[in-house]
Design a protein around this nucleic acid. Sequence first.
DNA 1: CGTCCACAGGAATGACGGGCGG
DNA 2: CCGCCCGTCATTCCTGTGGACG
Length: 363
Amino acid sequence: MAPVLRGSPGSNAFIYGKTGTGKTAVTKYVLNKLSSKAQKLGASVDFCYVNCRLAGTEYRVLSSLCDALDVNVPFTGLAVGEVFDRFKEGLDKQRKIFIVVLDEIDALIKARGDTLLYELTRVNETLRHGRTSIIGISNDLRFKEFLDPRVLSSLSEEEIVFRPYDAAELQDILWRRAQVAFAEGALLDSAVALCAALAAAEHGDARRALDLLRVAGELAEREGADCVSEDNVRQAEKRVEHDRIVDVLENLPVHSKLVLCSVYLLGKAKVSYTITGDIYGIYCELCDQSGLSPLTQRRVSGLISELDMMGLLNARIVSMGRHGRTKKIRLGIGRSLVRNVFTNNDRFRGLLSYVPNCFAGVS
DNA sequence: CGTCCACAGGAATGACGGGCGG
DNA sequence: CCGCCCGTCATTCCTGTGGACG
């Protein structure tokens, strides 16, 4: 990025790496350094960091970029093209080199296609004074396949791959943080080693390793132990996972919950597997029970796919010859987990013991 | 070896709540 | 207040398809 300090635009760059390998942290760190250096040298540089997954749409990404340039844009109401024009205009007026960081860019491209990226890579051609360079950050290594070759070639002038941390590196990271957070001797070597090993097995996710250590520390503190043990780490692992699932489960839209509940009920009836059609039948009954109008099968099929991707369901396409092609579906999480969450929900408590019509009379 | 089931999943379209500038 | 556009969720209509069965 150094050329920007001399007033010429830097290369576009592409950064790959799995979650928790430090892509975002490093990028932000470098940009901070760069901007303070630029200030000292009086270089006209500005940057904007956008998380595309959080922003979610082209419109919101563009409006973040405009914000960074102090260009006034309403957060809805304008055509995307209009926002883009204002962005270009602002860029040209300010005669700046503008560094655009698009984090989790794969999420945006998968959902929306690469039009925005294409426009952004071409923006320099139409600017007279300003210049942009783009830094794309992606979790998905195979993400390139989704890109238009023109975008790809201009975007990957520089490529950086952040490989996953191995267990030794994770231990190193953990110890450094532990020095600040834990009292001397409050941490067993083996506990730290286990945190590192668990996170390394996942995919070298440092954030996860730190989470585990933090929760293990809290657990140890609560039980009044004088040091964090391996046992605490194992409890922490369960705890972290458990909390994550409960959180997703509780925040599911109501129809997704009904679908999940249908799968739960079918499981209760010792059916060996369930298929889309069965689930849809029971789902309709549950809608009836709770006074909601059911969605179409097409939509429910989509909901099942979403739940599958979240890991709450396991769905796999099978062909049963004469009996058609469908999905075999079962719960992807513990039944007790579903039961617990729904028992705490007024609307669903009753449904857990509902007996679907097709089971009536069957023991 | 063709048929046909029971869906998968893409595309187009619409309803809806929200916000905009004029 | 109007006409317009936004994003989200859903519906409608559609074509595609693996493999047991006849």
